[in-house]
């Protein structure tokens, strides 16, 4: 882990080839999913991108008080927290609904035999 003042894991400018995309673009599948959900909701007109950025910046600032964020997992943790509170605020998904559905997914994973597709029980 890098110290607070050091840049975490800087890519060498030439080492990765001149036009390579950052590798990987998303470190975890859920990072990509949280990103896509947010962009999709904004594009569908449920909130403006500027409103999203305002809230997300505030969360990052709050999280950054205690320690320097590395821009990876902690960045998307802040992203998800912002998205959840934003969706609760606009009445799209309450925290109770999210917890209930999360628990159903957890249950589905724990009761689906390894290798079988995981689906929510109806």
């Amino acid at each position: 882990m890098s110290s607070c003042l050091d840049l975490p894991q800087v890519d060498t400018p030439e080492g990765e080839g001149p036009i390579a995309a950052p590798e990987p673009v998303f470190e975890q599948p859920w990072h990509a999913q949280a990103f896509a959900l947010t962009v999709g909701l904004s594009e569908a007109g449920h909130f403006s991108w500027a409103d999203w950025v305002k809230r997300f910046s505030a969360t990052l600032k709050e999280h950054g008080h205690d320690r320097a964020l590395n821009g990876g997992e902690d960045y998307f943790a802040a992203w998800l927290e912002t998205l959840e509170s934003f969706l609760a605020e606009i009445g799209a998904a309450s925290s109770a609904q999210v917890e209930h559905t999360r628990a159903r997914w957890e249950e589905a994973y724990l009761t689906t035999p390894h290798g079988a597709p995981v689906k929510l029980a109806q």
Partner: peptide
């Protein structure tokens, strides 16, 4: 060994929950 499907990390389950809710409500495709 995994008798059941490997449980994704907590935030991944929360994202899945959001996706489920928003798709069910027709807010997202």
């Amino acid at each position: 060994d995994h008798p059941h499907a490997l449980l994704p990390p907590e935030p991944a389950l929360r994202v899945k929950a959001l996706e489920t809710i928003l798709c069910d409500k027709g807010l997202i495709d």
